[in-house]
Design a binder for these strands. Structure first.
Ligand code: FES
Ligand code: FES
Lengths: 156, 156
DNA sequence: TAATACTTGACAGAATTACTCAGCTATTAT
DNA sequence: ATAATAGCTGAGTAATTCTGTCAAGTATTA
């Protein structure tokens, strides 16, 4: 239950890949495709959405690719997913684009609303920087580095 | 993003309806159908699943219907949804029935896992009793009753 | 001007969802 | 007994959503 679409998942992985290569300049779709095992054609669709949303910007021509629009700590997972999959809406009643007639007096409505807010704050609080640190940690784990605070939960 | 299917939603509403009528004995599908605006045929399918899972039991023949297998405080929303929609699995990688090959070294895996655990503890902590109290509260709100602890968040 | 790389819109197959339907079995009141 | 009530079961189907592909562009640089 409560699956994320592949579009959203690939989108986050693509953004992570762009963030990871930040020092090497623009990242091409081809590189992302190879490193994350997602087809070029599908990534084109996904990255285009994210660009229109202003989360990344593109550089055309040879040597081009995609770069983050802001620093990794300013780009949340929630922001990425919202662009690719629309707002968090456990039920159609909670989707601002739809709505519901029997909201008043509906107990479950409050339940789903609370769950949705819970999820949303989790996603909005988690950023690309956290993923980068989590990755760093994973690579150097055995050497007993100090662990960044928020990431610790990712390794419990 | 992250929608719950109607099956899960209707299931929770049906269970709530059975719990609410607990003092009046077994609740019929027809009653649930009328009170919750869900077709009898669809409810048959849903309640059958919940019965096989042992969350409710049925009484056949005239005067029959469905009754809860336990007290409302022992039946969690999570338990209901798991039966109707399978385990919480944000990605297919996290579904015990599927799995993933590239788990090791995958940062997002840890992210989705943490989110899934977050959601699951929310759902497992919330019970039919909480819904009943939330409903009670909603009905008597204006008369300034004292509010049960956990339900307060449902009305923030 | 050739090569690189992003841009855009349409489209199609697969999978899932959201149901309906027909016919059955068990229980109780008369 | 038997008629009425009420749940039980499996199959089937229309609609929607998902998961991509494809073709034909435009912009930039060497
Ligand atoms: S049915 Fe829409 S809010 Fe409950
Ligand atoms: S791709 Fe399966 S765990 Fe990351």
């Amino acid at each position: 239950m409560l699956r994320l679409s592949t579009k959203g998942q690939y989108g986050v992985r693509a953004m992570f890949e762009i963030a990871r290569s930040i020092s090497r300049g623009p990242t091409t779709i081809k590189e992302i495709s190879e490193r994350q095992d997602v087809s070029v054609a599908y990534l084109e669709q996904i990255l285009n959405t994210l660009r229109k949303a202003g989360l990344i910007s593109s550089v055309r021509g040879p040597g081009g690719g995609y770069v983050l629009s802001g620093t990794p700590d300013k780009i949340s997972i929630g922001a990425i997913l919202r662009e690719l999959e629309g707002p968090v809406a456990i039920t159609s009643c909670l989707d601002p684009r739809e709505g519901c007639l029997r909201v008043d007096g509906c107990v479950t409505h409050l339940l789903w609303k609370a769950l949705g807010e819970n999820i949303e704050s989790f996603l909005d609080d988690m950023t690309l920087k956290d993923l980068l640190e989590g990755n760093e940690l994973m690579a150097t784990r055995r050497r007993g580095r100090r662990q960044p605070e928020k990431i610790r939960m990712l390794h419990k």
